[in-house]
Amino acid sequence: MTTMATAPAPGFESPGVEDFQLPPIFGPVTKPVLELVLAAIIVVVLFRLAVRKPQLVPGKMQFMGESFHGIVRNSIAKDMIGKAFLGYVPFLTALFAFILVNNLFGIIPFIQFPTFAHPGVPYALALVVWVVYTWVGIRHHGLGGYIRISTWPPDVPWWVRIILTPIEFLSNIILRPVTLSLRLFGNMFAGHLLLLLFILGGEYMLFTADSILLKILSPFAFLMGIVFTFFEAFIQVVQAYIFVMLTASYIGTVLADDH
């Protein structure tokens, strides 16, 4: 956006990575840290309210809580895990609710930062998931059995196995949590950057730029900002769903038996 007027206004500085490095509020506590705590509180309080007085004919809160639980139970856990899916439903439900609230923080006024757009946060979450499905796998098959189903392709000669086993080990045991977290991080990061670009760009066009044409066109930038806010809401729900679905499928994978 070059300045054409006689008294040049400062050029537009596009938002970048530095907008995600938020300063500490007190001590080592930053905005994402507070958001994580807030999200945990919101999830706990909402579910407590939902089951406070359970009734046969559910009230509004109970109905919403049960519907949420039902989605995770029937369309994620049952399909992905198969036998013994019931034990994992509480973990998956909590995970879904927690990620969903954190993602939606990206478009809630005055919070407006999706927690998982900060790269450290999704890595920690994926680490939790990795520990869970690794533990489930080792408990079900034993350590040797877990390593075997994860890295031992069946019915191949030994020299092929020398090549393939390191690939499967890298892919299944090391890269799986990395891709899980990168997918969530990338989507949240890109979405937040997009909103920043439209809103800050519109603000620049309206208040800072010299050109009258840019001032006239600035409502379109804000309009795009609003359109993409709704789009982001959709992405945030979908990404929370995908994260939980893949978590469930990894648990299902380590539970799969030979017969």
Binding site: K83, W152, N172, S249, G252, T253, L255, A256
Partner: peptide
């Protein structure tokens, strides 16, 4: 479904939607 995951699923095999991600992960690895 109760008989060991989805019907016909073999050892170490991911359920359908995760298969694509696993295949991509194998390729990159």
């Amino acid at each position: 479904r109760d008989a060991g995951g989805a019907p016909g699923r073999k050892t170490g095999e991911a359920p359908p939607p995760a298969e694509a991600w696993t295949a991509l992960s194998h390729l990159l690895s």
